[in-house]
Simulated scan of single mutants.
Amino acid sequence: MQNKEQHEQKAPRIKPIIEAADSLSLGISIVVAVLMGVGIGLLIKNITETPWTLWIGVFIGIAAAILNVYKAYAKQYKDYEELAKEPRYAIKKQLQDDEDDDDDNKKNF
């Protein structure tokens, strides 16, 4: 009975799993966006019977994939900015304050 309780306490929480799935979903969304673009290109090619229209779909898919990467970057950057505002992560400000103190203590001859 104790062993089972200890195992339940050591079990990972759901947050790391969600974060890993979010990172994994970026890779999947890139592949899906490009495949959907190719599918759109093939559909346009079959409708118009013009071979170069396939490339329109490919470019749409690549543009969608780049947009997905940009959105993920913007989300991560926002999270980074929120972390940077926390006092325990304010080492940059502490280093600047230390440099300012060192400049005041120097004697100019």
Rank of each mutant, 00 (worst) to 15 (best):
K93A: 14
D100A: 12
A65G: 07
T48L: 13
I14C: 07
L83W: 11
T48S: 15
L83Q: 14
D104Y: 08
P12W: 06
V58Q: 00
A33E: 01
Q6M: 09
K4C: 06
R88W: 13
Y80N: 03
E8T: 07
T48K: 10
H7P: 02
K45N: 13
Q9H: 14
A74R: 12
I62C: 12
N3C: 07
A11W: 08
Y89M: 05
I18T: 02
Y89K: 03
K85H: 12
V34P: 00
K78I: 08
L26Y: 05
G27I: 01
W52E: 09
S23H: 14
N46A: 14
T53E: 03
K92C: 07
K4G: 05
I18R: 12
A64Y: 05
G37K: 03
W55Q: 04
I91E: 12
I47C: 04
K15C: 05
S29Y: 09
I44S: 00
I30G: 00
A63N: 04
K45F: 05
P87V: 06
K106G: 01
N105D: 15
Y70A: 15
G37Q: 03
K107D: 10
D101S: 11
L42G: 11
F59L: 15
A90R: 15
E81P: 01
N108S: 11
N3H: 08
I60W: 02
I18Y: 08
I30H: 00
D100H: 08
D79S: 10
L67V: 11
E82F: 02
I18A: 09
D97Q: 14
S25G: 05
V32R: 02
N105C: 04
A84P: 04
T50R: 09
E99V: 07
K92P: 02
K93D: 08
L24H: 04
I91G: 04
L54M: 08
V34Y: 02
I14F: 15
N68Q: 12
K75A: 15
K75D: 10
S29K: 15
P12D: 03
P51R: 04
E82G: 02
Y80K: 06
A63W: 05
K107C: 10
K71D: 09
A21K: 07
G37D: 01
A64D: 05
L43M: 14
Q94S: 09
I30N: 00
A20V: 02
K4Y: 07
G27P: 01
N105Y: 13
A84G: 06
L24D: 01
E8K: 12
L26I: 15
Q76N: 14
E81R: 12
V31T: 15
K15F: 13
E81Q: 14
T53N: 03
S25D: 10
N105L: 13
Y77H: 08
D103K: 14
K15P: 03
Q94G: 04
A84H: 10
V34D: 00
K45I: 06
K107A: 13
Q2G: 11
T50Y: 05
V58K: 05
I62M: 14
A33Q: 02
M36E: 03
N68W: 03
T48W: 03
E8Y: 09
N105V: 12
G57F: 01
I62P: 04
K92M: 11
